[in-house]
């Protein structure tokens, strides 16, 4: 459920780093909590993300949830497929359901992100609380 090689934010986004670029999506847990996703509001290419700040929303038919940037940086690509097929996030959250690619401004910010096993622990804690 939480693939190796990715870094995870406590706000349930994942980050896959290649050189100075990071691909961002939401985790299996996040899409499962939301249920069937009906709409994704994406930022524009060129938008600046700030770590921890909201950069878009994802909707199921009766809930709205915000995405939070796992790292800061400029958006260099967004997944246009999601406009017509938002269900890709449910079907393949780590693959075709990716959301955007960001040019990582400050690699040091990544240190706060969690490893797969730490994130899994975090999710367990969340489930106990909620």
């Amino acid at each position: 459920m939480y693939p190796e090689g990715l870094k995870y934010a406590k706000t349930h986004e994942w980050l896959k780093v290649e050189d100075n670029e990071g691909k961002v999506g939401i985790t299996y847990y996040a899409q499962d909590r939301l249920g069937d996703i009906t709409f994704v509001e994406l930022p524009q290419v060129g938008a600046e993300l700030t770590k921890g700040k909201s950069f878009g929303t994802v909707e199921s038919f009766k809930a709205v949830s915000e995405f939070y940037a796992p790292v800061s940086g400029k958006v260099i690509q967004v997944n246009k497929e999601l406009r017509d097929n938002p269900e890709l996030i449910n079907q393949d959250p780590y693959g075709q359901g990716w959301i955007l690619v960001v040019e990582i401004a400050s690699p040091a910010e990544m240190e706060e992100l969690l490893s797969p096993s730490d994130y899994e622990q975090w999710v367990k804690q969340q489930e106990e609380v909620g």
Binding site: F39, E59, F61, K62, V64
Partner: peptide, 14 residues
């Protein structure tokens, strides 16, 4: 009723 995420009972202040 559809596209209800626009509405006050879901999005409240937004």
């Amino acid at each position: 009723l559809t596209l209800q995420t626009r509405e006050q009972h879901i999005r409240r202040a937004k």
